[in-house]
Design a protein around this nucleic acid. Structure first.
Lengths: 338, 338
DNA sequence: ACTCGTGAATGAAACGTTTCACGATCTCCA
DNA sequence: TGGAGATCGTGAAACGTTTCATTCACGAGT
């Protein structure tokens, strides 16, 4: 049966000072005389006082924290982003509230609600839908928002992403250079600009080589971008005799799924099927056949996003929205080496 | 330039009712007449009112959230645990505050402080040190705590873990059965009971086979349990001519590091070196050589821990601490198949 | 005509901080 | 001796909720 936790008032009584003084010891120690300060501090220690941040924040009217909502914490890509965000937030004295929407709109909305109720200073988000009413409302009410790994075509907020068209081009050019003329693109939902852009890049590079994209490329759209569902789809295709000689996957988890499906249906990689992934997560290098992949500057994405957000929080008036765009690069490994 | 967000009072004025009524619409809609309710609701919508949870929580004195502090979000093991925790918390109406201590005591302490200041109802933690003053103080002040993937020998809190001695035995018995007589154990810090227990199990199984554990087993202690540092240590050993024919690793990330080091120094796996990992993370099955591993019921750990915590929060008086212990199982794959 | 009961809304108190205008006390120097 | 600063402390107000005792209005029952 826990006794109610002591308040600043209890500390004040015990130390024989006023509450204002205790508050000063906590927040502006230099304003209070040495002797009083130590008296207060020992009262705090004796009572086991812990500041109630709800009260502090209520009074302050504003918090020193930002929200980060990612799509899928199981994807190492988002860890690295989160790590970048935390680094910058730490440096600038902000706390990060980490939320995992798990690709469900209901969870995303719930977290947005919670973050707004907590009066976070700003929100970093990889939204399920770029143009969501919920997000617009949040911004309208004055909470700055930065999109991570997404761009808003309407440009009414900052965003940080990687040039997905270039990523698609890199993958396509690499495969075409190795003579592949039937490429299957295991895509996530084409409603995602990322997935669509990568396809655009892929088509562009095929066309640049003088081939007909429509003849070369086949698109397989997979709703959930993880290893398991991609494996299942790929396996079904392979068992029915896939004709493609190369696969390009919208992320490395999917590529691992395709790889497993290929190997378990007796294909050799890259002999029978070359595979290019996306993100270059750490596990890509350790895969059954080390994966060629498109590397994104993941931590930098997180760092840049956090910096933009804090900039907007600190200078809401002079702030101008920016769309930061990083360039991806190709990392070649066994899965495409002939 | 964001206008101060509207308070319940603004809503009350606009709807022509008192603040108490607005609060009732928010929290006990059934207590207020239909017509008033809709009037208030449209005022809320018109003003874009969002409840200030600091004020609500200050008044309530207690929150409906629990903290979860994990060691390393980059380790899929902890995701799965987190997922289990979230499932249960969702069902029971609690929010989860997710924190990543990243194996740094300073971060762990900082998060404990923040969580306590936020007056979370309880804390789930995989602590860096099981017996920490900080944790004891937290408990003494009335915040229930449950250890995840750890046990407290002093049994002054609940805990959920997996029998690591059995895990070590499973691995050892499997390797011994295949005729290995020189086994290197890539361990994390032996100060962790987990790592120590697995060694105990390993030694026990070797002894059970009539061999001398001291002659068979060599222990390599690696401070940071990730792929990179393990790879570096393993590689150095392999380049100097490792004599062991089998490696047992304290987790799968480490096993992946060993695998990479072995392959890149020209060893065949399992021919020259058999490898057993721990945790059976999803990537283990997709590794260059699919890894034999010790599987833990990861989500169940999270679920059980959350249930124990909530139980203690809801019945602080009648609650009795429990130490839940799951059994691991062996999953055999290529890395130990001869 | 009167109480009584019921359903609905009110308004003030309380939660634990921080802030800030205001005293109190001391030191130093004319 | 008096007065000007400087240095420390004080205490009340304010932040936005929720709660709860109270009031109000109105119809039913005697």
């Amino acid at each position: 049966m826990s006794p109610m936790s002591p308040s600043i008032k209890d500390v004040a009584v015990r130390a024989g000072v006023s509450v204002g003084t205790v508050s000063n010891v906590l927040n502006h120690p230099e304003r209070v005389a040495e002797s009083t300060r130590t008296a207060v501090q020992s009262a705090i220690a004796a009572l086991g006082f812990v500041r109630n941040s709800s009260a502090a924040q209520l009074r302050a009217g504003t918090s020193r924290s930002i929200g980060l909502i990612v799509l899928d914490m199981a994807n190492p890509f988002f860890h690295d982003v989160a790590r970048g965000v935390e680094q910058v937030a730490d440096e600038l004295g902000y706390a990060v509230v980490l939320c995992n929407s798990d690709d469900q709109t209901s969870r995303e909305n719930r977290y947005l609600q919670v973050l707004e109720e907590q009066r976070v200073r700003g929100v970093l988000i990889t939204p399920i839908e770029v143009s969501s009413d919920r997000l617009d409302a949040l911004r309208r009410r004055g909470t700055p928002t930065v999109l991570v790994d997404r761009h808003d075509p309407r440009v009414n907020c900052c965003s940080v992403a990687v040039d997905d068209v270039v990523g698609g081009e890199l993958a396509g050019a690499h495969l075409v250079a190795q003579g592949h003329e039937r490429i299957v693109y295991f895509s996530g939902p084409l409603g995602l600009s990322q997935c669509a852009d990568r396809l655009t890049g892929l088509r562009r590079s095929v066309a640049a080589a003088g081939l007909d994209p429509d003849a070369v490329i086949e698109v397989v759209e997979i709703p959930v971008m993880n290893a398991r569902s991609t494996h299942d789809v790929a396996r079904a295709r392979f068992e029915q005799g896939e004709r493609a000689t190369a696969a390009f996957c919208a992320n490395d988890l999917m590529a691992l799924g395709v790889l497993r499906a290929a190997l378990s249906t007796g294909r050799r990689v890259p002999g029978d099927l070359a595979i290019v992934g996306y993100d270059d997560i750490e596990f890509a290098a350790d895969a059954a056949v080390p994966l060629t992949s498109i590397r994104q500057p993941t931590q930098q994405i997180g760092r840049a996003a956090a910096q933009l957000l804090v900039e907007e929080c600190d200078n809401p008036d002079t702030h101008a929205h920016q769309q930061v765009m990083f360039k991806p690069e190709l990392v070649t490994r066994e899965s495409t080496r002939h």
